[in-house]
């Protein structure tokens, strides 16, 4: 286990390791299955061609899947040493 984080060990300006995630329709479908968010704006490419909820004729990624990237930066860094998120 990595060294425990403490208030003193964290400094303003610390840069946490970046994370990357490739996104395609399959990734979005998997996220829909994991989150139960089957909103057609994410899952139904044919419907999106005409509905154009975001002004685009294609599905968009779930907002929470984007948010999960921010979570991942924190969970990769703090959770292995017992940390927890309190607010985002």
């Amino acid at each position: 286990m990595a060294k425990k984080l403490t208030f003193e060990s964290v400094n303003c300006g610390d840069v946490l390791p970046e994370v990357k995630q490739h996104i395609d329709q399959e990734t979005i479908w998997k996220h829909a299955a994991g989150s139960f968010d089957y909103n057609p704006v994410h899952t139904n490419p044919e419907w999106c061609k005409t509905a154009q909820v975001f002004g685009l004729p294609v599905p968009v990624q779930h907002g929470n899947q984007t948010m999960s990237l921010m979570c991942k930066v924190i969970t990769n860094w703090a959770y292995p040493v017992g940390g927890r998120m309190m607010r985002m």
Binding site: K4, T27, H31, G34, T75, Y79, P80
Partner: peptide, 23 residues
């Protein structure tokens, strides 16, 4: 299933023994 859908392969989300070892 949620962690897998994210996707996030951090073992904390899949391995109880590892999670306990991490506090």
């Amino acid at each position: 299933a949620y962690a897998e859908g994210v996707p996030d392969d951090n073992p904390l989300f899949y391995d109880e023994a590892y999670a306990k070892k991490c506090g």
